[in-house]
Every structure is written in C-alpha cells, then in structure tokens.
Amino acid sequence: MAAGIDLTLDCTDAQLLATFWKTALGYVDEPPPAPFETRAQWLAQFDVPEDDSVDDGAWLCDPEGLGPRLCILRVPEPKTAKNRLHIDVRVPGYGNPGERWARIRAEYERLVKAGGTVLAEFDGHHVVMADPEGNEFCVAAASA
C-alpha cells in the first residue's frame, strides 16, 4: 500500500496563503480532528508558546478527498531561496494546443487577481507563478 502525503508550506501569514490556495485549488478548510469542534480546542492540547495562535496555521483539504492535504504554517524565518518542491496546478480539460493554452492563460489570470505573480511564461506549455509569499508553482494543462 502506498503512503499518503500532506504538503506543508512555511509562511509568515498563514491566513493570507490559505485564502490564496483555497482559491487556486478549490480546497476548503479541513475540519479539526475528532473529538474537537474547533482548531483552537485542538491546538490547546499541545504545549505551545503563549504567543502562538490558531491563525498561525491553516489546514486545507480537497473537498472530494482526492488531493493531498495542504498545511500552511507560520514560521519566524523568511523564505530565502527557490523552492526545492513545488505545486503544479493542473487545469482540467483536453483539446488542441491552442485550447489548452487558452485555459492555462485564463487560470493564471484568475490567480493573478487572487494575489499570485507570473514569474515566467513558457508559451503553449506552462506558466511559472508565485503565491503572495513568493512560493513558486506552475500552471499547466492536465496530463493527457
């Protein structure tokens, strides 16, 4: 049996990135684990520093249960280099190359409005972007 994975993004503003990635992926806030009714109740069970807040983290999931969970956690140090692992946002649908590129363009334009930045465009294939805190990701067509 294959192991499941979570993806974790370090950040300075977990709520800002959670809003962006919910928009980008169509993810939703993951409910707290049972028996907790809120993330604050769940967090209270840990011996965390007094200045830690439930807003210092966000836990997102695919509402259909297919994609990996995304954990977004505030850390004190800033991002200093290119990601060694990045997310590829795959735009669904098929068609000829022009149709696929039109869908990619529409998606990256939507993500720019949500706070993303275009870093490089590989015309007809994919676009390299950054989320509001500079984490790189790609927008490309779904695999054929």
Rank of each mutant, 00 (worst) to 15 (best):
D56Q: 03
H126A: 13
Y27C: 04
E107Y: 02
H86P: 03
P33E: 07
Q41R: 09
F137Y: 13
I104N: 02
G134M: 06
D131G: 04
D29Q: 08
D6E: 09
E77N: 08
P49S: 13
Y94L: 15
A120W: 05
T8C: 14
A34L: 09
G95V: 09
D10E: 12
E107C: 13
T38N: 03
E37R: 06
D62L: 05
E107R: 13
E37I: 06
S143A: 14
R90D: 03
P76W: 06
G4C: 11
I87W: 00
G4M: 12
P92I: 10
S53K: 15
D55I: 06
W42H: 09
H125C: 12
G95F: 15
P33M: 15
L73C: 10
V128G: 00
F122P: 00
D62E: 12
L119P: 03
R100M: 14
E30V: 03
D13F: 06
V54F: 05
L16I: 10
C71V: 12
D47V: 13
V139T: 08
G98W: 12
A24L: 11
S53D: 07
V91Q: 03
R84G: 10
G93S: 02
V91K: 09
L119M: 10
W42T: 01
L119A: 14
V54H: 01
L7H: 02
T23I: 10
P49T: 03
V139H: 00
S53Q: 07
W101D: 05
G93A: 02
E107T: 14
L111F: 07
V48E: 04
F20K: 01
L43H: 07
E109P: 01
V28P: 01
D62K: 05
V91A: 10
F137R: 08
L17N: 02
P92A: 09
L85A: 11
G26E: 00
M1K: 14
A81Q: 10
F36P: 00
D123A: 13
T19V: 03
G67E: 07
V89S: 06
I5R: 06
